[in-house]
């Protein structure tokens, strides 16, 4: 028997979660010598442009072939967690995921799902990380193409340096410049 009548609602992660969550924040998705390893780094910023040093973010993604468990060749959780540092920054070593199908079966450009929690967020923000050097795939991606606002589209692109290092910043709020990251909620 359960005592509840509907979905459990969200509450903020608060400021003091480190001792409860950092145990899972130490793993990279691939080893340093993995061929095709990328680094994904970035910062989390608030509406005043200040870094958010007490955020926790997670990425969830396919492997380099676009597969998820149990179809991956190597053991693969597709999951990594980071707590932002004193400068609001995070860094994860991963791979660029292979293309995966959308809900309606269209092929999507490579992307990573990301969720961010922080003090002051009563519920998390969900977004997607695409790659700015995937011009062709991005041009036919159903989600990117559905975004009418060009700032919203570019907020989803991780910027590559040409050497497999990508930067993806999360702007929780940026109303003056209109650069707020495009966030998503999901169909229930």
């Amino acid at each position: 028997m359960n005592t509840q009548s509907g979905p459990t609602p969200s509450q903020t992660i608060g400021p003091f979660f480190k001792f409860g969550t950092e145990w899972l924040a130490d793993e990279h998705l691939v080893s340093e010598d993995f061929e095709g390893a990328i680094s994904l780094t970035g910062g989390v910023y608030d509406g005043a442009g200040n870094p958010v040093p007490d955020a926790m973010l997670e990425i969830w993604q396919a492997d380099e072939n676009g597969n998820f468990p149990p179809d991956t060749l190597e053991p693969w959780t597709g999951f990594a967690r980071r707590l932002t540092d004193a400068n609001g920054e995070y860094a994860i070593r991963s791979v660029k995921p292979g293309a995966v199908a959308s809900a309606s079966g269209e092929l999507q450009a490579p992307h990573i799902a990301m969720v961010v929690f922080a003090r002051g967020l009563l519920k998390p923000v969900f977004t997607r990380v695409y790659f700015d050097d995937e011009n062709e795939a991005n041009a036919s991606d159903p989600l990117l193409n559905a975004l009418e606002d060009s700032n919203a589209r570019s907020s989803l692109l991780a910027m590559g340096d040409g050497h497999r290092a990508y930067r993806f910043d999360i702007r929780l709020q940026d109303s003056f410049r209109g650069l707020e990251t495009q966030f998503f909620a999901f169909e229930n």
Binding site: V52, W60, A62, R119, L122, Q173, F186
Partner: peptide, 28 residues
């Protein structure tokens, strides 16, 4: 709740139909 003022997004999130990436589960 004061901390929401500068941290809560101002734009309404778009409702996304989950793709395979959002429909996969992490197993620990």
């Amino acid at each position: 709740y004061q901390s929401t003022a500068l941290r809560g997004p101002n734009k309404t999130p778009l409702i996304l139909r989950p793709g395979r990436t959002e429909n996969h589960g992490a197993v620990f």
